[in-house]
Nucleic acid binder design. Structure first.
Lengths: 354, 354
DNA sequence: TTGTATGCGTTATCAT
DNA sequence: ATGATAACGCATACAA
């Protein structure tokens, strides 16, 4: 079924059908009705490929996600969902491309075959070859995260350094003298993954600024790794009384390990960090944390990209989001004695909390 | 950059460039090299849109996912990831369409504008209008899940009825006399969502077959709902000693509620069900469960779809997966006395498990 | 108000 | 072994 067939059945020319559909030129009411009737009867919709070829744009955007090997975190998942929804609202379709390494067939297809009008690039590393490729291909794009050399590109990011700094200050103000940062996976840290590196920056700064002792550990994006991180930390640092984390997927493990060690939050031990709101609220007790606005980021990334597609040569815009740290119940005054042997307290460790 | 420009610079005709690229007709070695040099220099790649128009296929498949409002479960996420990976391996791109309702712009665009060569439809309900639309549009598709009237379509599904039946028998064999099914959200159940309905079927059958008492509750796809479900069940049924569930996202809440109630798994209470492997292994103690093979399903769905695109008129194939129930540590003999007041046992409730 | 003709970038048929 | 050309389905400049 194509526009020619509609025209034939309605007894008009193809251009009249086209104009009746687009409204870009007046069509007599009677003619329009005749055309519409045929269209309704046959369920005709213009072929997207032909239209794309003619118009020079596909009405699709590419979303470059980490490959399935590394499973996405909930935050990333929310982000993908909100991008797809925001794009749908703008009548744009989303083409998914799993890409992590630099030599990637799917990524190359995406950007060099004119399949999409623009790209949203997730999981940017501090040095990222894909940014160069995108720039070179002159394809509009928005990065989630920013490279060290970020002037030439549009990006939107969470201010991990600032937020971690904020949480460490909060802990220091509560009297904690030794705090740990539970970061992302060793692989991501080694690869120069922005949030991990910038979290470290903020941590290091705040720790020095407040004169507290700081220790950083890498931690896989799963509960088990979180558990092992805490176990290792407690072994190596019996005087540790607080952690801050940018690894939301580790939170259930962190919780379990603390419970197993007989440490009650926040009486014996404080936990804070940067995480999606649902993770934070799901923590026991609810986590004092900066809530990563994954949904907002998706929506904003799409509108930034649409803007960029419309005006590719305007100077790139950057959005650094610093959501407030929501004070919930997982942080408290440092225990009188360090955590090694928990001090007695109301509703303490071991007793069922029913 | 287009094929004409390459042809001009290489001093040949456009068709020669095309044939040099496709290899569908012999090209003199010297000519081929000349062409290749120009292509390498300019980084030319054929325009996907033009090729799609000419060839009558887009080399894209559509993946219809639930809208972002309902956040995806990990199992669904794994599925999406494996579909994208499997498709990439076959040089297919994946177009995402969030669609739940029946009147859906994105879904209609996908199927009636020839944007994709085929569709994978997630989250099928027992009666699903989208199946009819797809059939009517003569677009090859594979359903994840099957409708009641499933003869006309290709599908792949997990045998929820059989698996739940299996787990209930297992519990009955261990001496449990009253078991509960924790199902999916009330909305999904009401909408006639296949896994929820079929889980009920298997549950009802097995309960009758073994002469045990069965109670079913709907439960949202999140930890909090899981927790509330267990709390409600324990209140209403003090003699309950076991649950089976098809709601993996509820597992952390189930675990927490049982711990809060001072019930130790599997000594006081048994838990089993159908869940992704990671969720099962993350349970404490590891969950005796049928592991949903989300990754396999994605891979198989893609190859089924590719097959169907190649031969649209062969009789539709159906794949019903029944993964084995992995015996881990969350099920045990029914307690001598019902769970109301937990009996003493080794490593029982309340004591830190360090 | 409507029709005719052209071109988007490719692949494939026909001709040489 | 290679070149000229038609066609895929659409949108639009130009003509009437």
């Amino acid at each position: 079924m194509n526009i020619g067939e509609i025209a034939r059945r309605a007894g008009v020319s193809r251009s009249t059908v086209s104009y009746a559909l687009s409204g870009k030129r007046p069509v007599a009411a009677a003619t329009r009705k005749r055309i519409q009737d045929v269209i309704d009867e046959l369920g005709y919709r213009p072929n997207a490929t032909a239209r794309a070829l003619k118009e020079g744009r596909t009405r699709m955007i590419g979303l470059v996600i980490p490959p399935a090997g590394n499973r996405l975190t909930h935050m990333q998942l929310d982000f993908v969902g909100s991008v797809v929804d925001a794009a749908a609202r703008a009548d744009l379709d989303v083409l998914l491309s799993p890409s992590g390494g630099d030599h990637d067939r799917s990524f190359e297809r995406l950007i060099s075959e004119s399949r999409v009008d623009g790209v949203i690039l997730m999981e940017i590393r501090l040095q990222d070859a894909r940014v160069g490729r995108l720039l070179q291909a002159r394809l509009p794009f928005v990065g989630i995260g920013h490279t060290t050399d970020d002037r030439a590109m549009c990006w939107i990011d969470v201010d991990y350094a600032g937020l971690v700094r904020h949480t460490v200050r909060h802990l220091a103000d509560l009297g904690h003298r030794k705090v740990a940062l539970i970061s992302r996976s060793p692989e991501l840290v080694a690869a120069g993954y922005g949030p991990a590196i910038r979290a470290r920056e903020g941590f290091t700064e705040a720790v020095r600024e407040r004169g507290v002792e700081g220790v950083e550990v890498a931690c896989g994006d799963d509960a088990r790794s979180g558990q092992e991180s805490i176990e290792g930390l407690l072994r190596a640092h019996p005087d540790l009384t607080a952690v801050t984390t940018v690894n939301e997927a580790a939170l259930p493990g962190i919780q379990r390990a603390l419970a197993d060690a007989g440490l009650s939050v926040p009486y014996d031990f404080s936990v804070t960090g940067v995480a999606g709101r649902l993770w934070a609220e799901d923590f026991r007790p609810p986590l004092t944390a900066a809530d990563v606005p994954a949904h907002d980021m998706g929506v904003q990334a799409v509108s930034l990209l649409i803007e960029r597609i419309a005006a590719p040569h305007t100077p790139p815009r950057h959005i650094l989001l610093a959501p407030p740290v929501s004070l919930r119940s997982s942080t408290g005054a440092a225990p009188a004695r360090p955590a090694a042997g928990p001090a007695p307290h109301p509703g303490g460790a071991g007793a069922p909390r029913a």
